[in-house]
Nucleic acid binder design. Structure first.
Ligand SMILES: [Zn+2]
Ligand SMILES: [Zn+2]
Ligand SMILES: [Zn+2]
Ligand SMILES: [Zn+2]
Lengths: 137, 137
DNA sequence: CGCTGATTTGACAACGGTTCTCATTGCGGA
DNA sequence: TCCGCAATGAGAACCGTTGTCAAATCAGCG
């Protein structure tokens, strides 16, 4: 279904700014990060407004929302088509972008196998990079 | 490689009670629900202790933990020691366990390709189960 | 244009799940 | 048994999120 309930919302400066901030970043960002970004750009928007608009947008299917491991909601513009994942080093934070057709197909297949539709996935790979592997024990 | 850090934890009455409560329920339960269950059985265990033990258990891979749509962590006893993932329904919370050799191999390969060692991964797949797909128009 | 009424905003309080603090408890090895 | 240190428990603190409500803003209309 993916019901676009297309709530008739009034266009406002704040909503546009939030949508813009989202569109500018290909990564998932939290409401608070977006709020800080806007503040950094001199755009004054209330934190509650950021939350309200983000949840409205996600309800309308304009943005994707997932929960981080610690329960924080993070949002990303839906239009982003350069879908990819990361391999992150636990030692130094080095992050390498990887595209994984194999994992995309696996997620779709395994979900479909159980009758699921509108499948999404979050995949994070972390380890120790070559340098950190050598440096630390 | 999903290292079982096998923390040497001291066996206590509380830990056993929590593990027992988990083992008794096939469903995912929140820390607070488990705490309430124990209280109902007359087993007095501090809420903080429930939280501490649950996160220790999940770190050791003894229990599965997923996040509900509203950010609450829910736990379930791991039937098998085998590494596996879940497909979770965004509508009703139904969670299906899946073993994903393909994704394991992909994670290993893509990490090794970039020189990473001690690779771990987090994989979450979610969608709408057959029932919820049909239910919501 | 200016009025009018509904929508949206923003500052702040409130909420709920989780984590922290620290004095107390109680295993477990010597 | 004695001691040292992990584990516990009660409550406060924390933090992301949601609720409150008066003030600001917008669309439509006269
Ligand atoms: Zn590194
Ligand atoms: Zn992907
Ligand atoms: Zn469902
Ligand atoms: Zn896996």
């Amino acid at each position: 279904m993916t019901e676009q309930t297309r709530t008739d919302r009034r266009p406002t400066r704040q909503r546009a700014a939030i949508a813009d901030a989202l569109a500018r970043s290909p990564e998932f960002r939290s409401a608070q990060e977006i709020h800080a970004d806007l503040a950094g750009d001199g755009t004054r928007v209330g934190l509650a407004t950021v939350y309200r608009n983000l949840q409205a947008m996600s309800a309308d299917g304009e943005v994707d929302v997932i929960r981080t491991a610690d329960g924080e909601a993070v949002y990303r513009s839906c239009a982003t088509d350069d879908h990819h994942h990361h391999v992150v080093c636990r030692g130094c934070g080095l992050a390498v972008e990887v595209t994984g057709d194999a994992v995309e197909r696996w997620a779709e297949a395994v979900a479909a196998e159980h009758g699921f539709t509108h499948v999404r996935h979050t995949v994070e790979v972390d380890g120790l990079c070559a340098q950190c592997s050598a440096g630390s024990v």
